[in-house]
Computed example of a mutant assay.
Amino acid sequence: MYDWLIVGAGFAGSTLAERIATVRGERVLVIDRRDHVGGNAYDEPDAAGVLMHRYGPHIFHTNSDAVFQHLSRFTKWRAYEHRVLAKLADGKLVPMPINRTTLNRMYDLSLVTDEDAEAFLNSRAEPVAEIRTSEDVVVSRVGRQLYETFFRGYTRKQWGLDPSELDKSVTSRVPTRANNDDRYFTDTHQFMPLDGYTAMFRRMLDHPNITVMTSTDYADIKDKVSFRRMVWSGPVDEFFGFRHGKLPYRSLKFEHRTLEQEWFQPCGTVNYPLEDVPYTRISEYKYLTGQVHPKTTVTYEYPSAEGDPYYPVPRAENQDLYRKYEALADATPDVWFVGRLATYRYYNMDQVVAQALATFKRIEAAVPPTSANDTPRSLAATGD
């Protein structure tokens, strides 16, 4: 008998489990269909002993002091500023996002100031009457040649759609800079968990009021466990039995390689925007972790239409379909929908933690602490 069932042991579920167990003193069962906690941020030593991320690189960054301070309860940090290079058709490696160095290397220019770079970009930019799509965002800022060089092929591979078919939010996430700042992120807090993400999650869930069951699917236990309230961090359409049809998601396939050499590439991630290259990027984990090891492990990422859901596809018709599920979620008592999949949002890790902490505040305001006289519910009473 549990006060809360939490489906999913990633950032959303683990953050709420810890808050509910610690602050409210209530009993929590956390389940995950995978064989580990941590969701997509799970990391582990591979056979060679190199600490790597099973689901591709996860780089923590945030401007939120509250999120950073909260996670600091469960980990020490290693300062890390992520850098990305893009490999062009002529073999050149240039910084991504586009900055002044990128322009100088591509065009053999000698742009010296931010004003020089801005003037060059403005000379390339093409006016767009209304910014609606991801193509509009880039073309209106840097022009068609830079758009085709860096964004069109990469986006087609990543999303299976042309940028002209995607919401403007996709490419709006990637800035264009006139300075020489070659960091991928510019957030106030840029760190990696010192002992890895998995160690952080295990500390977060190490509480006498929390029971964790991995390799456990919701459907397998819904008739066997009783609870009073629930947090769902899986796909919202799955919770409701795909009543209105499936929400589109993109997935990823990973090829992990351990190499008999100390380093493989010059930075943490190299992007491959050419459409005829099947993978989108290669990441090398020792840059992220700071680990000293005679071997190195890299991951090739291949976007896919099939597999575990990773990214909600940002198109207007998908948002219309999501709103039908959102209405069902809002009308479902005692179930809280949190996280990227449950709210169909393309969130970063820190945004998921912020959403979970905000959800906990709403729980505190709306839900009285559990009484011994409260009536438990069967898992079978919640979804389809």
Rank of each mutant, 00 (worst) to 15 (best):
R257T: 05
R257K: 12
R257G: 00
T258Y: 00
T258W: 01
L259P: 11
Q261M: 14
Q261T: 13
E262D: 10
E262H: 10
W263E: 10
W263Y: 11
W263Q: 12
F264Q: 10
F264H: 14
P266Y: 03
C267A: 09
G268K: 05
G268I: 03
G268R: 04
T269K: 09
T269N: 11
T269C: 12
T269M: 12
N271M: 06
N271C: 06
Y272F: 14
Y272H: 13
Y272G: 07
P273L: 00
P273Y: 01
P273W: 03
P273N: 03
L274H: 02
L274Q: 14
E275A: 13
E275V: 06
E275G: 08
P278F: 01
Y279V: 00
Y279S: 06
R281T: 01
I282E: 07
I282T: 11
I282M: 08
S283F: 03
E284W: 05
Y285A: 01
Y285R: 00
K286Q: 11
K286A: 01
K286P: 07
Y287K: 04
Y287C: 05
L288E: 09
T289Q: 09
T289R: 06
T289G: 11
G290I: 08
G290R: 09
Q291R: 09
V292L: 12
H293D: 12
P294G: 12
K295G: 05
K295A: 12
K295C: 10
T296S: 14
T296F: 07
T296P: 14
T296V: 12
T297M: 08
T297V: 04
V298P: 15
V298D: 15
T299E: 10
T299H: 03
Y300K: 08
E301P: 03
E301A: 01
Y302R: 01
P303C: 00
P303A: 00
S304N: 10
G307P: 09
D308Y: 07
P309R: 08
Y310L: 09
Y310G: 09
Y311P: 08
Y311K: 04
P312M: 03
V313C: 11
P314R: 02
P314H: 02
P314A: 02
P314N: 02
R315I: 04
R315W: 02
A316W: 05
E317D: 15
E317K: 11
E317M: 07
E317P: 11
N318K: 05
Q319M: 13
Q319I: 01
Q319K: 09
Q319S: 11
Q319D: 15
L321Q: 09
L321M: 09
L321E: 09
Y322I: 02
Y322H: 10
Y325T: 04
Y325S: 06
Y325L: 05
E326C: 08
E326Y: 10
E326A: 15
L328F: 02
A329Q: 05
A329G: 08
A329L: 02
D330A: 15
D330H: 13
A331R: 07
A331H: 03
A331L: 04
T332P: 01
T332H: 06
T332N: 03
P333D: 06
P333G: 00
D334E: 07
F337L: 06
F337T: 05
V338S: 11
R340P: 15
R340D: 14
R340S: 13
R340Q: 14
R340T: 12
A342R: 10
T343C: 15
T343G: 14
R345A: 15
R345Q: 15
Y346N: 13
Y346E: 11
N348Y: 12
N348C: 05
N348W: 13
M349W: 04
M349F: 04
M349P: 05
